[in-house]
């Protein structure tokens, strides 16, 4: 087995039934070369303090449960490794910009509502009836949206987004990237329905192009690019409306 060392993990603690304000608690955790921050937290929960509360599930960076701040950076704790911080201590906090339910578990209801608001499903054109056959879509057409379909809803981009931090009405990076994922799909004809979300003050225009969302995305989704492309679409839509009035749905 690989050699065991010790690292100090400092966790933000908050229990709504007993605490008026969050505080920090430190734990000494033995770790080996391959241990993730998540495994460090699991060690604490199993052996030192069963009250420490955090979400996790797949431990392979695909379920999106374990996002948290490690030394002020939003990361997936399952693919962030203790070896990269030792011998310094690390500080683990809940994802920034979200209300805390308890300790490292944040309230994700605001995000889920935003996800729903972008009509995140295929809206085929009315004449499109593939019957019982799959539609055709070339590999190039798949590439047009596949990158934006990689979002695991881990919320790191919201924790990194200064605009969302200032005003949580902003639809935000992941939801707007998902909106673009469907708009960019050759099988979809729902752009008009989604345009309202894009054009709203809280839509793409809420973004000030800081680009932190794309920096922190563990799946290389590039929400900033999705938002930027929709700013172009939104501008065109604005001018087109003067030329060709469109009935509201």
């Amino acid at each position: 087995m690989s050699q065991t060392r010790t690292i100090v993990i400092e966790c933000l603690r908050f229990h709504p039934e007993t605490d008026e304000a969050p505080y920090y608690q430190s734990y000494e955790v033995p770790f080996t070369e391959e241990m993730s921050v998540l495994e460090g937290l699991q060690y604490i929960k199993d052996h030192l303090d069963g009250t420490l509360t955090f979400r996790w599930s797949c431990r392979m960076a695909i379920c999106g449960s374990c996002g948290c701040m490690v030394n002020d950076e939003p990361v997936l704790s399952c693919q962030t490794f203790l070896r990269d911080y030792h011998p310094a201590r690390i500080r683990v906090e809940p994802l920034a910009h979200f209300p805390i339910l308890r300790d490292l578990a944040i309230d994700q209801t605001d995000f889920l509502a935003k996800l729903e608001s972008v009509h995140p499903y295929l809206i085929p054109s009315t004449g499109d009836d593939p019957g019982d056959q799959p539609r055709h879509q070339t590999p190039d057409q798949v590439q047009d949206y596949l990158g934006y379909a990689q979002c695991i809803n881990c919320l790191l981009c919201y924790a990194a987004c200064p605009q969302y931090g200032l005003n949580d009405a902003f639809t935000g990076p992941a939801a707007l990237a998902l909106l673009h994922r469907y708009n960019a799909d050759s099988r979809d004809a729902g752009k008009d329905q989604r345009m309202e979300v894009i054009n709203a003050e809280e839509g793409v225009w809420g973004c000030t192009l800081v680009g932190e969302c794309s920096e922190v995305c563990p799946k290389h989704v590039d929400p900033a690019r999705a938002i930027n492309q929709n700013k172009i679409a939104s501008t065109q839509d604005y001018f087109l409306r003067f030329l060709k009035p469109r009935g509201r749905r």
């Binding site: 499903y121 295929l122 085929p124 593939p130 019982d132 056959q133 799959p134 539609r135 055709h136 879509q137 070339t138 590999p139 057409q141 798949v142 949206y145 596949l146 379909a149 469907y182 799909d185 099988r187 979809d188």
Partner: peptide, 22 residues
């Protein structure tokens, strides 16, 4: 096959052959 096709109709990004077939 009916169910996998249904998922295609819902937007699942199935990998394709060059001609656009599944």
């Amino acid at each position: 096959t009916r169910e996998l096709t249904q998922l295609e109709h819902w937007g699942c990004p199935w990998s394709r052959q060059d001609d656009g077939n599944i």
